[in-house]
Computed example of a mutant assay.
Amino acid sequence: MTERFDCHHCKESLFGKKYILKEDSPYCVKCYENLYSNTCEECKKPIGADCKDLSYKDRHWHETCFHCFQCKNSLVDKPFAAKEEHLLCTDCYSNEYSSKCNECKKTIMPGTRKMEYKGNSWHETCFICYRCQQPIGTKSFIPKDNQNFCVPCYEKQFAMQCVQCKKAITTGGVTYREQPWHKECFVCTGCKKQLSGQRFTSRDEFAYCLSCFCNLYAKKCAGCTNPISGLGGTKYISFEERQWHNDCFNCKKCSLSLVGRGFLTERDDILCPECGKDI
């Protein structure tokens, strides 16, 4: 007796009939289409076993239904773009949605690399340095007067040169005696520490931090022998080519402050009138 060969679903005999295997089980065409065929996005009808099933992002179309939403031209084997669930040929998409290059004014086609800056778009080959005319690509650039410059060209054309290292100053910087410096180049002539943001003074057009200036040039207090900077409101007393901090100008014997008082001298000592009355 001949073994039966039936549809896995409806159990009708498949001898002499067209059938389709699904996971090693045979189905008649009708059952297969009812059970497994995808529904076309365009016409909403099943995509039969004898039709080509075109798919995009889990959506399916008959070959004849796979066309541009706007111009209705077939998209089979052609590039296309999607917008709000609709498929569009590249021409329709470009005319409707693509941005225009700020340089050549032509459409930037879908899939084409482009550059964007402050709401404007460029073809990658059109986004060039105004000075050297070379594509900027992913390199850093600096805008100036509605033009874009690569960093080397900007530095050559516009940037100030540091007085110390002679290189361009692109950000920040310090102005001293109407000349530009990098912050890291504006240092104390003595100890080479950066002076930017610090108190400093100068001598013979050279800048010094307060510590170096005092150690090198300030007179020493006749009382404590520490330098008297005279900067920042420091008060001091001068007498016969000698100087004292206000706090150090005291009677040699009784240590009474002599600031604003009369005093006497004995050799190099300064005395209050009381201590010096027997001189």
Results as ranks from 00 to 15, higher is better:
72 K>F: 14
228 I>R: 02
240 E>T: 00
255 S>N: 15
142 I>Q: 02
266 E>S: 11
86 H>N: 12
183 K>M: 09
178 E>Y: 05
212 C>Q: 05
187 V>P: 02
148 N>I: 12
240 E>C: 03
34 N>L: 07
20 I>S: 07
70 Q>K: 13
172 G>K: 10
268 D>K: 01
243 Q>A: 13
135 P>M: 02
204 D>C: 08
249 F>A: 06
123 H>E: 11
143 P>W: 10
226 N>H: 13
102 N>M: 06
92 C>F: 05
223 G>T: 03
242 R>V: 02
66 F>P: 03
63 E>W: 04
206 F>E: 12
276 G>F: 04
212 C>G: 04
2 T>W: 09
140 S>G: 11
25 S>E: 15
25 S>D: 11
35 L>N: 08
236 Y>G: 01
198 Q>P: 03
269 D>F: 10
129 C>K: 06
268 D>I: 02
213 F>T: 00
147 Q>S: 15
167 K>F: 10
278 D>S: 15
139 K>N: 13
220 K>W: 06
222 A>S: 15
264 L>I: 06
39 T>F: 12
261 R>I: 00
231 L>W: 11
56 Y>M: 07
38 N>I: 03
93 Y>N: 06
213 F>C: 06
58 D>S: 11
181 W>H: 04
52 K>C: 08
55 S>Y: 13
92 C>H: 09
87 L>A: 06
100 K>Y: 12
171 T>R: 08
218 A>G: 04
94 S>P: 12
128 I>R: 11
151 V>R: 08
227 P>M: 09
18 K>F: 14
95 N>F: 13
192 K>Q: 14
210 L>T: 00
189 T>F: 12
89 C>I: 01
74 S>E: 04
33 E>G: 08
236 Y>D: 00
233 G>Y: 10
269 D>M: 08
135 P>N: 09
89 C>P: 07
147 Q>F: 11
23 E>C: 04
89 C>V: 01
170 T>A: 10
242 R>C: 08
249 F>C: 07
245 H>I: 02
93 Y>I: 02
102 N>F: 13
265 T>C: 14
29 V>G: 05
195 L>H: 06
278 D>H: 15
176 Y>H: 13
20 I>E: 12
122 W>M: 05
